Simulated scan of single mutants.
Amino acid sequence: MNRRKFLKWSGIGALTMLAGGTFASRSLAANRYYDGPVSDHFDGTHFFNPNGEEPNSFFELMRWQFGGGRAAWPADWPSPFPAAVPEARVEGDRLVVTMVGHAALLIQTAGLNILTDPVWSDRVSPFSFAGPKRVNPPGITLADLPKIDVVLVTHNHYDHLDLATLKALSERDNCLIFTPLGNDRIMGPTVGEGRITTMDWGGSTPLSAGVTLHCEPCHHWSARGLGDRRMALWSAFLIETPGGKIYHIGDTGFHQGINYRAIREKHGAIRLANLPFGAYEPRWFMRPQHQNPHEAVQGMAASGAAYVAGHHWGTFRLTNEGVDEPLAALETALDAAGIARTRFRALRPGEVFEVPLATT
Rank of each mutant, 00 (worst) to 15 (best):
L176C: 08
C215W: 06
G253C: 05
L166H: 08
E265V: 05
P326T: 02
T16G: 12
L15T: 14
L207K: 08
D35S: 14
P138A: 01
E265K: 15
R134T: 08
W284M: 10
P126L: 09
I177S: 01
M62E: 06
P82T: 09
F66I: 11
V38P: 00
H311M: 02
P118S: 00
L275C: 00
S125M: 08
G182C: 06
L207S: 10
G310A: 03
L238V: 14
A143Q: 12
L330M: 08
G268T: 00
R185W: 07
D159K: 01
G250Y: 01
M17F: 14
R229V: 14
S121K: 03
R3L: 13
Y280W: 01
S27T: 15
P132Y: 05
D117Y: 06
R123P: 11
I148M: 07
V119R: 10
H294E: 13
D184K: 15
D324I: 02
L163Y: 03
P217H: 00
Y247L: 14
K5R: 13
G21C: 01
V150A: 02
G69N: 09
R94Q: 13
G227R: 06
L334C: 05
A71R: 14
A333V: 03
N49I: 15
G243P: 03
L169I: 12
A333Y: 03
D76S: 13
V191M: 01
W77R: 11
R70F: 13
F344S: 03
D200C: 07
P288H: 01
P86M: 09
P356K: 08
F66L: 15
L105N: 12
A71D: 13
A309Q: 01
G111M: 07
V211H: 10
A232W: 00
L226F: 15
N274S: 15
I196C: 06
E193L: 10
A358E: 03
N51L: 11
F178V: 09
Y34D: 12
I177V: 15
S27W: 05
G139R: 00
A333F: 01
A337F: 07
K167Y: 09
G52C: 00
L145I: 00
G194Y: 04
A333D: 08
K167I: 12
T198N: 10
A336S: 07
W201T: 04
E265C: 05
T154G: 13
R287S: 08
D43Q: 01
S10P: 04
F81S: 05
E91V: 08
G67C: 06
V355C: 07
P189K: 07
S27Q: 00
Y158F: 15
R70A: 11
V211K: 09
H102K: 04
D117F: 05
G299A: 12
L166M: 07
Y307R: 00
L145K: 04
L145G: 02
R224D: 04
Q298K: 12
D122G: 08
Q291G: 03
A301C: 07
F47P: 07
V135I: 15
G67I: 03
I12H: 14
H294L: 10
L18V: 11
A306E: 09
H41P: 04
D122M: 06
L7D: 12
V100A: 01
W9M: 12
T16E: 10
V352F: 02
L357S: 13
A301T: 13
I107C: 05
F237V: 04
G250N: 02
H102Y: 14
I114H: 06
G188I: 03
L181C: 10
A29V: 11
T109G: 08
T45M: 08
S10I: 04
P217L: 02
A328R: 14
K8Q: 13
